[in-house]
């Protein structure tokens, strides 16, 4: 067990958990940040995606001991008022079906669009490859990422 200070959504949280605990379960079980979802636990589905210093990261593979003083952003901290361009595109296009995978999809898309301001549709399809949607809302997800990219371009 160990005490860890974590910088999550611009706040410092202190947790006392087993060193091997993945950040995912610290978020969900210790900190009540349940927007980040468990899907597979082995880095295959993307449901648990968060930002680590701005990069999309699988929180199920990242142990709490590995986080250090990196800045973590979860879906709850992506924007103040649900108004990140990616969230707006998701709401505008009504992407979600069951909705379970969507936080991970949004976190992957938002980190990707920070890196690639002018993605081709092939770039989008490859960038989102790591996120499974069992309801197969893929057409809408793709449309929403493209639409968010356009919005972010015109904003900058």
């Amino acid at each position: 067990m160990g005490v860890f200070k974590l910088r999550i959504n611009n706040k410092i949280h202190t947790v006392d958990v087993d060193d091997s605990t993945p950040l995912l379960w610290v978020l969900r079980d210790s900190l009540d940040l349940v927007g980040t979802k468990y899907g597979c636990g082995i880095g295959q589905c993307g449901a648990c995606t968060v930002h680590l210093n701005g990069y999309a990261t699988r929180s199920c593979l990242l142990t709490v001991a590995m986080v250090g003083d990196s800045a973590i952003t979860t879906i709850e901290g992506l924007s103040e008022n649900n108004n990140h361009p990616v969230q707006e595109a998701w709401n505008k296009l009504d992407v979600a079906q069951c909705g379970y995978c969507q936080a991970g999809q949004i976190m992957t898309a938002s980190a990707f669009l920070e890196q690639n301001k002018n993605p081709s549709s092939e770039d989008v399809r490859m960038a989102m490859h790591g996120n499974i949607c069992r309801c197969a809302a893929y057409n809408r997800i793709e449309e929403a990422v493209v639409s968010a990219a356009e919005k972010m371009k015109s904003n900058s």
Binding site: L33, V34, G35, N82, W90, D94, A96, G99, A103
Partner: peptide
């Protein structure tokens, strides 16, 4: 065309699902 009434809760990561449900003192 009417939008899914829970859309914004989903995009904000609100606790909606069974796996998100908790009570004080609950074990796993």
């Amino acid at each position: 065309d009417i939008k899914n009434v829970d859309s914004s809760k989903i995009t904000e990561g609100k606790p909606l699902f069974g796996i998100d449900f908790k009570t004080p003192g609950m074990l796993y």
